[in-house]
């Protein structure tokens, strides 16, 4: 299963972004292979409806689990609809810390 982690930078050493739609980068982690790739969020600077746009992207990427700091109501609804697991982490962590926690 693929997991998406919101990130402020394009490296695992960078801090994790607690914003969902407005995160600068997305780290997509393949839990089977342990590989992670970074995708730039083109909608980060948009006016409105960013949460929906990002949720749309998540579903398109075939991600099963999203880790972020919070989710807006519209994004929540959409992710719920497509059976995407939402995870909220409220600590200041690096992306690599979260990856390590998942890998155990």
């Amino acid at each position: 299963m693929k997991t998406l982690i919101t990130s402020t930078t394009s490296t695992p050493e960078g801090p994790f972004d607690k914003r969902f739609g407005r995160a600068a980068w997305f780290c997509v982690l393949d839990e089977k292979t342990g590989e992670s790739t970074f995708i730039k969020n083109e909608n980060a600077e948009g006016q409105s409806g960013i949460g929906t746009k990002t949720a749309e992207k998540v579903v398109e990427l075939g991600v099963g689990k999203v880790i972020s700091g919070d989710f807006g109501p519209k994004a929540k609804k959409l992710l719920d609809k497509f059976g995407v697991q939402m995870v909220i982490i409220n600590e200041d962590l690096k992306v690599i810390d979260i990856i390590n926690r998942i890998k155990g």
Binding site: G83, Q85, M86, V87, I88, I89, N90, E91, R101, I102
Partner: peptide, 17 residues
């Protein structure tokens, strides 16, 4: 301390992190 949802598509009942 992670908070999470468990959609119907997911079988595991434990913490996803």
């Amino acid at each position: 301390n992670a908070r999470f949802t468990i959609p119907e598509t997911i079988r595991n009942r434990n913490c996803p992190v």
